[in-house]
Amino acid sequence: MTSMTRAIQLGRKEKPKRGSLLLLIPGIASVVLLGILPLFIVARNSFAVADNYGGITDGLTLDNYAKLLDPVYSKTLLYSLGLGLLNTAVCLVIGYITSYYIVSRPAGKQGFLLLLVIIPFWTDFLVRTFAWITILGSGGPIAGVLGIFGIAGFSLIPSNVAVVLGLLYSFLPTAIFPIYASMRSIDGSLKEAATDLGCGWWGVQRRVILPLTRPGLLGAALLTFIPTMGVFVIPVLLGGGKDPLVGNLIVTLYTEFRNQPMGAAASMLLLILMLISMVLVGLLLQRSATKGSSSRTKRSSTEKGA
């Protein structure tokens, strides 16, 4: 049974406690003051008019949104969504496998392995990205080795392959951490029990670990997919910047086009789109959870009857 199901079931019995409400306050306050309050300004600006010098005048207009409906922008959006989904899928698979490996190590070693995952990211992002450019470019070691075998002219810079690789590299820890955290909490005896009952490797994954890791996987999916939308350095440095992402679009609007109102409108649209997809994911999760729990309840009642 997943935690969500448990929570939902318990929700019918218990009332909220005041103590737990107090615990929520600092988090809510931070997000409201530092996140939502500034967003009101963004929302207001999205209806404003840009002046010629990059400032904002007080006007009120829907033009900024209307302009964004131009089909030139839909290509950028679709490309970003596609790349985001691809990156999320790759990160989840690799993140799951890596977390599974870490959890299977002795407890004392797990912290060390986790650190090994994060340490590379204490080198500056640009330094790492430039290292990838060196490695994948025509002057790098791969090209050198291929050159020995007579294959000349190897270079993955710039290419879409390099972008996918760069995105995977950047978001892998963000994917590994939540998956690891929820996998770590699974009772080891469950896995043994499943194996004893004749489940193979895939069976154990499907029936025990995957369902119990679902909150972590969902967290990981959100943490990879959404930020991918806002990425703007990787596509330029590794991909040649020919196919801009939504992140590039917004940065361009805010800086080069010095059109804050339109940048704000683009951000609001992206925000709404992301909120809708989050709600959809939430609904799907809730439905599968209730379905799972009701079928289980049914089964247990039949068992009782028998």
Partner: peptide, 19 residues
């Protein structure tokens, strides 16, 4: 509540930064 805490993730950093 969950959506609230995750909200800053959905906003591109440049937008949040300027705001």
């Amino acid at each position: 509540l969950l959506a609230l805490i995750a909200l800053p993730l959905i906003v591109p950093e440049i937008v949040l930064g300027v705001a």
